[in-house]
Design a protein around this nucleic acid. Structure first.
Lengths: 325, 325
DNA sequence: TTGTACGCGTTATCAT
DNA sequence: ATGATAACGCGTACAA
């Protein structure tokens, strides 16, 4: 590896001068600047980030903690974060937490050990000590924290939207799938839906799913129709289970949307490719990722305004698993 | 942040001693060891990885470069890599390359700037200078390189399998979708399929898709049936386009699998949840990720055997888009 | 305008 | 068995 010393020697100047031209700091004569730049070129020198990080006590690294990249909703968040960070020259140390506090803490620890300058996390426990004691900015993504910077979608409104559409489009026996109890956004959606259903005095049932991943999605779909066979409208906790519900409905000979309407949540990329294409409540995942990155960068650079919690709008996407108005 | 000095002072010993107990290196009296460990506890000290990395000229970081995490095939690879790395205490600096050489080089550069000890990459150009000049181990994942360590699935065999199944199950006018020309695995699948189709003297057509992502998947499906309306069997370049093909077939009133059989490639998690569930050629993505990580770790630790390129088996998964035998 | 020298937090070498 | 100290590569006072 070539170091700043090599460059200095090659250019016949001191390391300080090389440092100055690299960082464009302090005075340096035009001629020497050129000499140095030439040497940098020739020796193919790039500064050692580790040394920089050690000296400055901060790196160009960001910690990103997501529950499970294998769930199609999260890659979009991740991508949004990455793209924005990339633009500002930050890199990501990435980890899956599996919603486990232990793994989270592990990662947080290595984040600080590696001098990251900020972290973006989808955690269920923003209030936990691991986060509170962090001395670097944290942005919670897809999770709500009233007193800490956060970017999330309006889940409750999403739930409301889903219920309203269900009703408007003629379902009378609606089943709402309640996502994992410890995941806040899941509960918000659920509450929103229930709220409307009750207000309107609609007949509804609820069902419980204990995770957001692929495992068991089919089982939950099956159980739903076993428990409530006369269901003519399903509000799924996310697009994955919604997909499983479509499948199960077909298996039972129910026509979608004629016999059962189905509304998902998230609008993962595959939803529009399904047959029938899935009607769903869209969360702008990619944009949320970008927004979180953006906010974090502002926090890091000290240019953040008062607005530190950003609620993104959700949107009903009409496709083919709901009836036409 | 608390440093080794703080611990030394608190325990009444020198930094050298603290270092010894932390790294379990050299002699240290049982009593002092206890004292130090206590101080470490009390001060909640964890070593600064950056300083370590600077001194040792190597970190505990691994660079992971994937084309696009937004494509459902890659998160599984990533997860496999992460889980294995996690087990051995390595962390990931992660980046999306979008199959762009520029982005790749950018990332590779910051990888070395950050003293990563190894790189796992899905690149289309393993022979490029950026990789050849790397002084740390590299494992190519989901990409073939004859002379460098690599983990990939047997794409050609996958293509063959798909074609054989198509024929066996009674399709006579088969259309094979050729994936992006510059992506090696895509071409292997394609070649494998063509190979069998020609050997068997079957009537077939081919179609071209220029990317593996969601964009345009529906358009390619549409074009396929426009160009070859009498197609009764589609070998898709991956599960995403296969999903779009199912959708388009339904839209055209074609029954799957009675009128058209469809076989995908990858077996992404959602495939089994589709209706009808997608028959596909399975690549053991998660295991491939793990295997790559495993190989890289061996390379890093110098315990790697002669076997440095691992070809993983593919497998036909029979579901509902192909007829029963 | 440029150079010298110190410190960032560790590990390892060499004394003691 | 333990301590002092150089070195890892860089950036910045401070001096010149």
């Amino acid at each position: 590896m070539t170091t700043i010393k090599d460059v200095a020697r090659h250019a016949g100047v001191s390391v300080a001068t090389v440092s100055r031209v690299i960082n464009e700091t302090g005075y340096v004569h035009e001629d020497t600047r050129r000499k140095v730049e030439e040497s940098v070129q020739q020796l193919n020198y790039t500064p050692n980030e580790v040394a920089r990080s050690l000296y400055k006590r901060k790196s160009r690294l960001i910690g990103l903690l997501l529950p499970d990249i294998t769930n199609p909703y999260f890659p979009q968040l991740a991508r949004g974060v990455e793209d924005r960070m990339q633009e500002s020259g930050f890199r990501l140390i990435f980890g899956n937490s599996d919603e486990s506090q232990k793994k989270e803490q592990d990662y947080i620890q290595t984040f600080v050990q590696n001098n990251v300058v900020g972290v973006i996390s989808s955690t269920n426990d923003p209030g936990t000590a691991s986060y509170r004691s962090l001395k670097i900015p944290v942005v919670f993504l897809d999770r709500i924290s009233s007193d800490r910077p956060a970017v999330y979608a309006d889940g409750r409104e999403g739930g409301r939207l889903a219920a309203q559409q269900m009703i408007q489009r003629g379902s009378h026996h609606i089943t709402v799938m309640q996502g994992p109890i410890h995941i806040r956004p899941a509960q918000d959606r659920f509450q929103g839906a229930i709220e409307v259903l009750q207000d309107m005095g609609i007949d509804y049932h609820t069902t419980q799913t204990s995770s957001f991943s692929f495992t068991n999605a089919d089982r939950w779909a099956k159980e739903l129709f076993e428990q409530y066979p006369d269901t003519d409208g399903v509000i799924a906790s996310n697009d994955i289970v919604a997909t499983a519900v479509i499948q199960e409905a077909y298996r039972l000979g129910k026509k979608v949307p004629q016999d059962v309407q189905i509304i998902g949540f998230d609008d993962i990329p595959l939803s529009s490719l399904l047959s029938p294409a899935l009607s769903t409540i869209r969360q702008p995942a990619y944009d949320m990722g970008r927004a979180a990155a953006d906010l974090l960068i502002q926090l890091i650079e000290g240019t953040a305004g008062e607005q530190r919690t950003i609620q993104m709008p959700v949107q009903f996407i009409e496709r083919e698993t709901t009836r036409k108005l």
